[in-house]
Design a protein around this nucleic acid. Structure first.
Length: 435
DNA sequence: TCTGGGGTCCTAGGACCC
DNA sequence: TCTGGGGTCCTAGGACCC
């Protein structure tokens, strides 16, 4: 053993999550090369193993893959976030049965904390997690064990890329010599927290493998790079620096942005998009019980079109009284939009930001000034609650502010031409087993 | 023709204050 | 001619994550 403590952190991660979700309900697609595309069917955001083997990178524009797709029969799906979100919560529920201490880290990953050693080897626990998730959701996961989150991530990487581990790796079970030689085979870029830029800089300093990094002096890393990388290094060395965050954190900012289905030239259409995005952002703001003290808006032209005049302004305005009222937030956003809009440009994207968020109950300056009576506050809250209930039940956008989306044909909304059914969340779209 | 969306944290530098 | 020192707050930008 290499001196790691006997407790473990596990990182459970679904293999090819989006593609696998599509396959669960389309078993005929097993073995067929698949990709899932971003909004507007723009870029590849997920690839099946077959497509990874063809060397297709995440972020590749779909239109650049047409020939390759034709040649290899690659099938593309639009992002079906309703389906992925529902499958995600199923997976999270299943794995939470193995440890009460769970941090849901992303849509397809969670850390589990195992404080006490099990009576079985950790890999046995890992195999049990794999088997149950597979049986109950149809998805396959890999499990990595380590004494820190960074090591658990690394163990998961090892399990994922080396079939001999059968989907589960416990770095803590390795003799230190074996661990050392394993880490020497992994590029430093694979470490959680080492991105492309840092990898280049580390490489220039002679640090190429994970073993190289692990052998560095934390003080040198701190002075040469940053305290962030120092923490990563210490975690690699088995000293925990990152705690498990079992509660979903309240967001410090909320952003909603979308590329348009087609270019927009007019202010009123941009305003329509901004209203719709703000409706979504404000709903998420209320969900986490916050109010915003500032509103930001930006619009963008297509930076890839060199023949176009480029203009991508943004602006942020403070609010005198922080609020979660869609009406006030929307009014502000529209006013901000008017200050940055210039005609004569080909806009392809817009976004809104809610900034300087704080808890709804906190004492606010406006309260001191007595701007709103208690009755007004209550009425406002009731109205917003109704808005959220209606939109939750009948679909977001059912009830909106002012003329949100009613004026035009909304031709700018995202294109999702390759969308699969909402298999798990809509009665009318359930998979039919027999005709 | 067609190129995603949503976050976090840290650092450096300027403004400002005493 | 010579032009301090230290602290805080804010913002922009860079890096990272999925």
């Amino acid at each position: 053993m290499n001196g790691m403590p006997s407790g473990r952190i596990a990182l459970v991660d679904v293999n090819n999550f989006y593609c696998s979700c599509e396959r669960v309900f389309r078993p005929d697609l097993e073995g067929v090369p698949l990709v899932v595309l971003s909004n507007n069917d723009g870029c590849v955001v997920a690839r099946s193993a077959e497509v990874k083997a063809l060397g297709v990178l995440v972020g590749t524009p779909w239109f650049q893959l047409r020939d390759l797709a034709q040649k290899h029969g690659i099938l593309a799906f639009s992002s079906n976030y309703t389906l992925y979100g529902d499958m995600s919560s199923r997976v999270m529920r299943v794995i939470s049965q193995f440890s009460p201490e769970q941090e849901i880290y992303s849509i397809d990953e969670a850390f589990l904390d195992f404080r006490h050693p099990p009576h079985l080897p950790w890999v046995t626990t890992g195999q049990a997690i794999r088997a149950r998730v597979r049986q109950w959701t149809g998805l396959s996961v890999c499990v990595g064990f380590g004494s820190t989150k960074t090591l658990a991530k690394l163990a998961n990487h090892v399990a994922k890329h080396n079939p001999q581990w059968q989907g589960v790796c416990d770095l803590g079970a390795l003799a230190s010599r074996d661990l050392e030689s394993l880490l020497a085979t992994i590029e430093v870029r694979e470490v959680w927290g080492v991105g492309r830029r840092l990898a280049v800089q580390l490489s220039a300093a002679g640090v190429h493998s994970v073993a190289d990094l692990r052998a560095c002096d934390p003080r040198w890393i701190r002075s040469r790079f940053s305290v962030v990388l120092e923490r990563t290094l210490r975690e690699l060395q088995g000293r925990p620096c990152l705690g498990l965050e079992t509660m979903a954190p309240t967001r410090k900012e909320i952003i909603t942005s979308r590329s348009f289905g087609c270019p927009i030239y007019q202010l009123d259409e941009l305003a329509e998009a901004v209203r719709e995005y703000m409706a979504r952002a404000a709903c998420r703001l209320r969900q986490q019980g916050s109010v915003a003290a500032a509103v930001g808006v930006w619009i963008e032209t297509n930076r890839f079109r060199e023949q176009d005049r480029q203009y991508s302004p943004s602006a942020t305005w403070p609010l005198v009284v922080p609020t979660d009222d869609t009406r006030l937030l929307t009014q502000t956003a529209q006013a901000v939009l008017r200050t940055v809009f210039r005609s004569g440009y080909r806009y392809v994207k817009a976004g809104v930001m809610l900034l300087d968020l704080r808890a709804r109950g906190d004492l606010q300056q406006g309260d001191l000034l007595g701007v709103e009576s208690a009755a007004m506050v209550a009425r406002r809250a009731a109205l917003m609650a109704t808005l959220d209930r209606v939109n939750a039940k009948w679909g977001s956008g059912t009830l909106g502010i002012g003329s949100a989306g009613l004026k035009s044909d909304r031709r700018w909304t995202v294109a999702r031409g390759k969308l699969s059914p909402a298999y798990t969340t809509k009665w009318s779209e359930l998979r039919r087993v027999r005709a």
